[in-house]
Design a protein around this nucleic acid. Structure first.
Lengths: 120, 120
DNA sequence: TCGAACCCTCACATTGATGTGAGGGTCAAC
DNA sequence: GTTGACCCTCACATCAATGTGAGGGTTCGA
């Protein structure tokens, strides 16, 4: 699949897809004419990247954790250096904090909306 | 409390606190000499703002939802315009998506860490 | 009364994620 | 063989969240 189709299927602009590649978040084959060529799993990959990005993680971190999230879940020990583990543990707790903050606030908003709806 | 103390207690730089004020996220009294003066609840407010910011919400949105999140939970109907409600509903589902994406990935990371720990 | 440790405003710099546009190939269909 | 819809690279623009520093007041204790 070429960049246009990937863009349509993921909602990410072409520019952005090239940026993700530049950041090492996705990879692209090249056709003889220089066009980028993507395989099917890249679609999910891009969606996951966008989800994480949207959740506030920087590309730098996403790049680090993506290899651990591949399916089928092969444990890539090459990535499991002590620093890597430490980074992951740190990011893990950061994500948990983020999740609870988001959840707390989402629930508060839901509660507010509920109250407003009922009360008028 | 002055800006220095608030900064220390929240972990936000002085510069950032002034920025939040500029964005309408927090308010500050002024002393006779022009110094900013904050009350106790501002500490929590700043922490909440930082949590939301870190979770990926822009100040523009945070500013809109903050009034709905005040405790004691007074329903501020002035804010409850139809557009406001629509914005909130939209933001609500966005947050839910974010939460599930974050949760999914956090769990995957936890699982990975678990596997790596056991396996070596 | 001097210095340290605060505070102020203003304004320019930076970083990360994006948009936009110029200048130019490729390719299929007409 | 030209047109339209793709693709390429490069580079400058933008926006939000921050950093940083200049230039200058206030407060307070030695």
């Amino acid at each position: 699949m070429r960049i246009g189709e990937l863009s349509e299927r993921t909602g990410a602009s072409r520019r952005l897809l090239r940026y993700y590649e530049e950041q090492g978040l996705i990879v692209a084959e090249r056709c003889a004419n220089g066009y980028r060529s993507y395989d099917e799993p890249t679609v999910d990959r891009v969606l996951q990247v966008r989800g994480l990005l949207d959740a506030g993680l920087p590309t730098r971190i996403i790049k680090q954790i993506l290899p651990c999230l591949d399916k089928p879940r092969t444990i890539h020990f090459e990535h499991a250096t002590p620093e890597m583990i430490a980074t992951l543990e740190q990011e893990l707790s950061g994500m948990s904090e983020r999740i609870s903050c988001l959840t707390r606030n989402r629930d508060a908003i839901a509660e507010y909306l509920e109250a407003v709806r009922v009360d008028r």
